[in-house]
Design a protein around this nucleic acid. Structure first.
Lengths: 209, 209
DNA sequence: GCGCTAATTGACCGGTCGGCCAGTTTATTG
DNA sequence: CAATAAACTGGCCGACCGGTCAATTAGCGC
C-alpha cells in the first residue's frame, strides 16, 4: 500500500489505555456528574471502544467508584501530610492548616466538584473515609484549647467543620457567585475569613456580651 | 354508597393536576437532580400520563425551570422579609439574620438540595437572582461598620459570603458528615459558629497579632 | 341539548442508554 | 513457530429516553 501506512498498526499499551479511560471518565464525571455521562462519551474522549472500557473496568459504576477513589486519594494525601507534620500546638498551626487546605482546594477544583456530585447523590463513600481526618484535626484543636491558645467553650469538631465548610463551599460557590458585587479574590476572601475566624477563636476576656 | 365506586369517573381539575405534576417533579428533581429524573417517573408519581405533562408544561426543561423558580421564590421571600424589617444597625441584627437564615435552611432542605444541583449543573439562574439580596445584606454590614459596631478592615461582602456559605453547606454537608465523631446538633453548631463569628467581627483593640 | 375548547389518553417515534458477545489482532512465552 | 492469554473491535440487544400525535372525554357558554 502507498504512503499512508499505519505507522506500526497499533502499539498496544494496556496500562496507558486504562489510564486514558480513567482520565476521560474522571473529567466527564467532574463536569457532569454520574447520571449525565454516557459510556459512549467516555469511549469517544479516550479514543477507545465502549467494549474496551467494559473489558478494563467492568461497568459504569466501577468507573465512577474508581474516579471517587482517585479524587479522595489526592485529598487524603494532602490532609494527612498537613496533619502529621504538626508537632506543637499554637495558633499559627491552625492558620497554616486552613491556608494549606484552602490552597489545595484552589489547586484541585475537580476534587471539589466530584465530591459535591458524590454527596448530592447521597454516596456514603466519602463520609466514611474522611471521618478519620476530622478526628485528627479535632484532636489538634482540643490540644490548643487545653493549652489556653483557643477559647474552650467551643466544640472542636465545630471549629474543623466551620473552616472545612467555608473553604470548600467558597470554591464550590465561586463560579456561580463570582459576580456578586464587590466580592474579592480568593486571597482577599481567605484573609478576611481568617481574620474573623482566628480572632473569634481567641480566649475571651471574661466580659463579652 | 358501596364504598369503592369511582366517585364520578374523572373529576377533572386542571389546576390541581398541574399542581400535582409540579410537586412530583419538584420532589424528584430535589432528590436526584435534573439528569437522573425521567418524565415517566414524574408521570407515574403524579398519577398522570406523560403526554399530559407535556400538555401542561411543554418540556422537561420547562418543568425544571419551574421547580427552580418555586424554590427561589420561597428563599427570596424569606430573605426579603428579613432584610426589610431591619431598621437600625446593631450587632444583634446580624445575629438574628444568621439565625433566621439558618432556621430557614433547616426548615427547607429541599431548597438547599435543589440549589446545589442547579449550581453543579452550572446553571446561572440563581446567581443572577440572588445578587440583589447579597447587595442588600452587604449594605447592612457596611452601615454597622461605619457605626463602629463591626471591625471595618473586612470586606462586607465577605461577611455575608461567610455566613451564607457556612449555613448552607452545614445542611448540605449534614447528611453525609452526620457521623463525624463528636459533632453536635444543628443548634449546638449554630451557637458555636455564632460565638466565633460574632466575636471575630468585633472591632479589634489595636494590639491584635 | 349543542358545539367548542381544553384536559386527558395510549400508541408510537427516532434515538440513546449500558451492557454483552462473537470475533480478530497483538504480545508473550515455552 | 505454534499456542495461549489478553487487548481490542463492531455489531447488536432490550430497555428506556423525551417528545409527538391523533383520538377520546369532560366541562362550559349558549
Amino acid at each position: 500500500m502507498p504512503a499512508d501506512q499505519k505507522t506500526s498498526p497499533t502499539p498496544r499499551d494496556p496500562d496507558e489505555t486504562r489510564r486514558r479511560i480513567q482520565q476521560a471518565a474522571f473529567d466527564l464525571f467532574v463536569e457532569k456528574g454520574f447520571a449525565d455521562v454516557a459510556m459512549r462519551e467516555i469511549a469517544e474522549r479516550s479514543g477507545v471502544t465502549k467494549s474496551l472500557i467494559h473489558h478494563h473496568f467492568g461497568s459504569k459504576d466501577a468507573l465512577w467508584k474508581s474516579s471517587k477513589e482517585a479524587a479522595f486519594e489526592l485529598y487524603a494525601e494532602n490532609q494527612r501530610k498537613d496533619l502529621m507534620q504538626a508537632t506543637s500546638s499554637n495558633s499559627d498551626l491552625l492558620r497554616r492548616g486552613v491556608i494549606n487546605y484552602f490552597q489545595f482546594l484552589k489547586d484541585h477544583p475537580e476534587v471539589v466538584r466530584l465530591f459535591s456530585w458524590s454527596h448530592l447523590e447521597r454516596d456514603e463513600y466519602l463520609g466514611e473515609n474522611d471521618s478519620e481526618l476530622v478526628r485528627l484535626g479535632a484532636a489538634r484543636i482540643r490540644e490548643a484549647q487545653e493549652a489556653g491558645i483557643f477559647r474552650d467553650d467551643i466544640n472542636p469538631v465545630h471549629v474543623i467543620t466551620t473552616f472545612v465548610i467555608t473553604c470548600t463551599h467558597w470554591f464550590a460557590a465561586h463560579s456561580h457567585h463570582g459576580q456578586w458585587d464587590g466580592i474579592g479574590s480568593d486571597e482577599d476572601f481567605l484573609d478576611d475569613f481568617l481574620n474573623i475566624f482566628m480572632d473569634g477563636l481567641k480566649p475571651q476576656t471574661a466580659g463579652s456580651a
